[in-house]
């Protein structure tokens, strides 16, 4: 194991993760709102924001799926050392990381009618992230907002599954926005 696998985690886990979670929670409660995160320095190609989300939410209880875009031994080692999360196929994953093109979106768990919470959260790495493009409406949004989504129809059909469905976190460098299944993309 190389030394830099051991680096890039939170300096003060309890405090850093509390700030990070507040940002992630606010993003999930207010779809489209962009937050800036700090505290993690993961190996490429994982973005800083995606690294912070994994450090904040993942542990041995949360199986992770790495899309081909992100499936490197170095990144596996980093995630294993810092979170202990196991790596699994898309069907069994609670979290998934990758670019939109490389994530097999239809393969992930969308929850069951009695337990809609048993669904995957996808961390989608983006080239850019801005409040332009697709119009968003729904819970957490006053009137409407906009977000640069990689696609629109996939999110429309995901919202149609409500209360089942996937929840998305879009990351770009040190910034992040979220799109829960309740958001209507139009």
């Amino acid at each position: 194991m190389q030394a830099h696998v051991l680096e890039g985690g939170f300096d003060n886990h309890a405090v850093d993760s509390s700030h990070a979670f507040r940002a992630v929670m606010t993003a999930m409660a207010r779809p489209g709102q962009i937050a800036t995160l700090q505290g993690a320095l993961p190996p490429a190609p994982l973005s800083k924001a995606a690294g912070v989300v994994l450090l904040t939410l993942c542990d041995p209880e949360t199986p992770i799926y790495l899309a081909p875009s992100h499936d490197s031994q170095q990144l596996r080692d980093w995630i294993t050392f810092h979170t202990g999360a196991p790596f699994v196929t898309a069907e069994a994953a609670i979290f998934a990381v990758g670019t939109w093109q490389d994530l097999p979106v239809s393969a992930f768990a969308i929850g069951t009618a009695e337990y809609p919470d048993r669904s995957a959260t996808l961390i989608v790495e983006c080239e850019s992230l801005s409040n332009t493009g697709a119009v968003l409406r729904g819970p957490g949004i006053k009137d409407q907002t906009a977000l640069s989504l990689p696609k629109t129809d996939a999110f429309q059909s995901n919202a149609a599954l409500f209360p089942l469905g996937l929840d998305f976190i879009f990351t770009c460098s040190d910034r992040l926005a979220a799109l829960p299944r309740t958001t209507r993309v139009g």
Binding site: H13, A14, S17, S18, F21, V24, M25, M28, A29, T56, L57, C58, D59, E61, T62, P116, D117, S119, T121, G140, F162, P163, D167, P180, R181, T182
Partner: peptide
Amino acid sequence: EQTKRMIRRAILKGLAI
């Protein structure tokens, strides 16, 4: 911290549903 992560994940799913 592990308990907090478990609660935090539940909060995120609660906000999503």
